[in-house]
Amino acid sequence: MRVTVRLFARLRDLVGTGELQRDAPGGATVGAVWAGLVAEYPELSPYEKSISCAVNADYSRFTAAVADGDEVAFLPPVSGG
């Protein structure tokens, strides 16, 4: 299956794009998508402890399963206001 990965702020800068398509095995979790991304871009790895994630624009957890066509977003600590 294929998912759309969205990255924001410093994560987007580190990878050089805010949106990419990645293949994931059936039954993969958000955490597996992140692990695949870190394998590709090791500079993301320090963020593992501080990021949040979302699936289809709703907050999610690393343990949640993703489905074909899902939009999986990784969010560094927020700083609005």
């Binding site: 927020v78 609005g80 206001g81």
Partner: peptide, 14 residues
Amino acid sequence: AIERIKQIVPIWKH
């Protein structure tokens, strides 16, 4: 509201 914005709304300052 402003305290919660700083906690949970996905917005970032550069």
